[in-house]
Simulated assay, not measured.
Amino acid sequence: MTEALGIRIQNLHKKFAQRQVIENLSLEIAPGSFVSVVGPSGCGKSTLLRLIAGLEKPTNGEVSLSPASANFSFVFQDANLLPWRTVAENVSLPFELDSKLQQISQAEKNKRVRAALEKVKLEHFESAFPHELSGGMKMRVSLARALVSSPRLLLMDEPFAALDENTRFEMQNQLRELWLQEKMTVVFVTHSLFESTYLAERIIMLKAPGAQKTLDQKIELPSQRSEDLRTSEDLNKIVKELSMRLRE
């Protein structure tokens, strides 16, 4: 397994027409860390993820990944599954789109697809089609598709926002387990302070205009997180403090 990706952002600016979405933002994210980015709508959270992924180009400034050769995956809010493809065929899509992954043998590709589905507990649904799946199962397929290439960085843009509460809790627990197992870097965008506090080691809070960094805080909670933690005094104290900062 290759090492996790580190991220360095220096004097980052991003402008759409006359609107300055990100202005002079600098931060570093350590390899193997789990960082959540929170803030109100329009503060530049999703744009920041897209800049890290190279889906947008900076107006000025720099985003660098180290090591630059390591791979990463992006999980969006919608599962974006192809309805005419089975679960296994959807998960295998990166092998068709990435020229480096195209060189892998078919036997190895099949092995990786099965392994990715096992990680998200969908190994018995590889022949199912998206219309046969619940919303939570579709998001698991999307996560498996992201994991099939063994990414060293996982970028996630509100992936659990549309799920019911029980399914969202299950997905959060599964993501924490995968992060600990895979030792990858995770950058997770969400509007939920409870979700960010439960999941992350570190929370970065942005505000508009210009994605100004108003808080950058390490979360002092155990690395192994259980359901009891969700209603604990420790977690709720952190959420209350974050809520006060967000209102400010």
Rank of each mutant, 00 (worst) to 15 (best):
T197R: 11
S192K: 03
N166T: 15
A144Y: 08
R140D: 05
E165R: 06
L154H: 09
T167Q: 03
V189Q: 10
K207W: 01
L199C: 05
L193H: 00
F169S: 14
T167K: 06
A208Y: 01
S192D: 13
L155C: 04
L199Y: 07
P159L: 06
Q172Y: 02
S149P: 02
A144G: 04
F188G: 05
S150I: 10
E158F: 03
I204L: 11
W179E: 13
S149Q: 14
S142T: 09
A200T: 07
M156R: 10
A161Q: 09
L180K: 10
S196A: 15
F194V: 15
M156C: 12
M205N: 11
A208S: 01
R168K: 09
E195A: 10
W179M: 12
K207F: 04
A144P: 04
S150E: 14
A161T: 02
M139Q: 15
E165Y: 15
P159G: 10
R202S: 01
E182P: 09
S142G: 14
E165G: 00
A162K: 14
K138Q: 12
I204P: 06
K183C: 12
L153I: 05
L153K: 01
V189F: 09
E195N: 11
L206G: 04
L163C: 02
M184I: 14
V189H: 08
A208F: 02
A162H: 14
K138T: 11
T190C: 07
E195M: 11
S150F: 15
Q172V: 08
T190S: 09
T190F: 07
W179G: 13
S150N: 15
F194D: 15
M171H: 03
M184Q: 10
T190I: 02
D164R: 10
A146P: 03
D164G: 08
T167V: 09
K183S: 14
A146Q: 05
F160V: 09
F169N: 13
N173L: 15
P151G: 10
V186N: 00
L147R: 04
M184Y: 02
L154D: 06
M139V: 13
N173P: 08
S196Q: 02
R176F: 04
S192R: 03
N173M: 14
E177S: 13
E195F: 13
E177M: 07
M184A: 09
V187H: 01
L154K: 11
A162W: 12
L175G: 07
V189N: 08
E158L: 03
P159A: 10
E182G: 04
D157C: 09
E170P: 12
L143A: 01
H191V: 03
I204R: 00
D164I: 12
R202L: 08
Y198K: 08
L163H: 05
A161Y: 00
R168S: 12
F194T: 13
R176M: 15
L143C: 01
A162F: 09
P159Q: 06
K183T: 11
V141K: 08
P159N: 07
L178E: 00
Y198L: 14
Q172D: 00
L178P: 03
L180F: 02
V148L: 03
A208E: 09
A146K: 08
E165D: 12
L163I: 04
S142C: 02
F188A: 06
D164M: 08
V141T: 10
K183A: 12
M184C: 13
K207S: 05
A208D: 07
R152I: 10
L175A: 05
V189S: 10
H191A: 05
M184W: 04
R152D: 14
R152G: 15
L153N: 00
